[in-house]
Design a protein around this nucleic acid. Structure first.
Length: 426
RNA sequence: GGAGGGGUGGCCGAGUGGUUGAAGGCGGCGGUCUUGAAAACCGUUGAUCCGCAAGGAUCCGGGGGUUCGAAUCCCUCCCCCUCCGCCA
């Protein structure tokens, strides 16, 4: 959420942000409502002040036994209050409309982000490794996984329909090994604190990180208690500090979490449907940072590096893109996507998205900090990056490390955890 | 699920209709004292919104109500604690 005062003073900047991010928002209507609300508020405040002071006088008159004068005052107050009722209704209704509009205005992109469509304006900022070459015809991950008994797509569909995977045997163990290994890396090398959160959250929490009110159709809803299944650990982990005032000494706060992620992927039928590339439920290790405003942009670079290190440790070819305004999400101010090369599919897959939200989420979720015990609370900046998303990482691993004999080499860092140096048919 | 107790400022904790944004304590900050520190003492210390400002308004878990006036009374919802039941 943007600061209403900022919008008041910089309406053109906000209009431009909406335009380049391709989010429709009626700024003129907002400004109009804002003016109406401020008028109503100041009139209401005046009347409230009157009622308040009159009430005190009445108290005094009652004590002094001046019944008649008190009654006269009461009549005065009653008249003022009937007026107030009307104004307060306007005030409340207008404010509700303002709040709703505010929640639907996207974050401002950072000045370094290119405006335009993804195809032409995403910038490749980093590339690591080389695409794997083969002296045999490489297979794609679905063939490899099925022949080695690592994933059972058919039986997964029996449980939940299409778009789900059931990892089996060494496939399941590979996921578990990757999760443990990645979390340990972030904890031990990058100074993260591990958290394990609920996977079901309230609507307020979804508003805090920006999924609601605009993107309800992308998520799974639990009608019974009006809960939502998290689409990413970003949601529960960022909201861990909702409504809090942190101390500057606590910053930066760095959490890492492993959670399942649930995405309805409504409207994406026919796109990327094969195998693991786009599923309704997947596991992910996610890093979330809370920082001061002056350190967040540097922290985004660090965060991006922390995610990139995972791919490098696994020896996987990847590229890093700085997304253009049209590629970024609603809440983001700057986003890097890490895309890993899948030599079987001969394409890159996004395995991580590293974003800085500036104070956008913090304002929605009410996450503030104090520089000293004296100073006024300010909003923190929030950031997050996948580190990494499991299914697409598995795609890249299987396709990159496949051998001519149908087995798959296990990269060195995972061998100990997996208890095997290769994936073979069981 | 049943019964009872409770939600007050950074924290603890008083406060059952009136000038209370809220006693007191702790913590924080400033000062006195001290070579320095501690102790002691004195002072100070909430957030949000409107307003150029002066100033004003709102906030004692959320929402609604009673009243001239509510942290205090009523209704409702949420959360926490204790005991019982159930259960991985």
């Amino acid at each position: 959420m943007l600061d209403l005062r900022f919008i008041r003073e910089n309406p053109d900047a906000v209009r431009r942000a909406c335009e380049v991010k391709r989010h429709a928002a009626d700024i003129d209507q907002l400004l109009e409502l804002d003016q109406a609300w401020r008028d109503a508020t100041s009139r209401a405040d005046q009347i409230r002040a009157l009622v308040k002071s009159a009430s005190k006088e009445i108290g005094g008159l009652m004590k002094a036994g001046k019944r008649d004068e008190a009654e006269a005052k009461k009549a005065e107050v009653a008249a003022a209050k009937s007026q107030l009722e009307e104004i307060e209704r306007t005030e409340g209704e207008t404010r509700a409309e303002i709040d709703d509009l505010l929640l639907r205005i996207p974050n401002l992109p950072h000045a370094d982000v290119k405006a335009g469509p993804e195809e032409t304006c995403n910038e490749e900022v980093h590339r690591w490794g080389e695409p794997r070459t083969f002296d045999f015809k490489p297979r794609d991950h679905v063939e490899i996984a099925e022949s080695l008994g690592l994933i059972d797509f058919k039986r997964a569909a029996k449980l939940a329909g299409s778009g789900f995977a059931c990892f089996t045997g060494l496939g399941a163990k590979l996921e578990r090994a990757l999760i443990g290994w990645m979390i340990d890396m972030h904890v031990e090398r990058h100074g993260y604190r591990e958290v394990s959160t609920p996977f079901i959250v309230t609507s307020e929490v979804m508003v805090g990180t920006g999924q609601l009110p605009k993107f309800a159709e992308d998520m799974y809803h639990v009608p019974k208690e009006d809960f939502w299944l998290i689409p990413t650990a970003e949601v529960p982990v960022t909201n861990l500090h909702r409504g809090e005032i942190l101390s500057a000494d606590d910053l930066p706060i760095k959490y890492v979490a492993h959670t399942p992620c649930f995405r309805s992927e409504a409207g994406s039928y026919g796109k990327d449907v094969r195998g693991l590339s786009r599923v309704h439920q997947f596991d992910k290790v996610e890093m979330v940072n809370f920082t001061t405003p002056e350190t967040s942009w540097d922290q985004l670079e660090t965060l991006r590096r922390e995610a990139e290190e995972v791919l490098e440790a696994l020896g996987l070819h990847y590229r890093t893109l700085r997304l253009s305004t049209e590629g970024m999400t609603f809440a983001s101010a700057m986003t890097y996507d890490l895309e890993v090369w899948a030599p079987g599919a001969k394409r890159f897959y996004e395995v991580s998205s590293a974003s800085c939200y500036a104070d956008f989420q913090a304002r929605r979720a009410g996450i503030r900090f104090r520089r000293t015990s004296e100073s006024k609370p300010e909003f923190v900046h929030t950031l997050n990056a996948s580190g990494l998303a499991l299914p697409r990482l598995v795609i890249a691993l299987l396709e990159t490390y496949q051998r001519g004999d149908g087995t798959v080499e296990v990269p060195e860092p995972l061998r100990h955890r997996l208890g095997a140096d290769a994936l073979r048919p069981e």
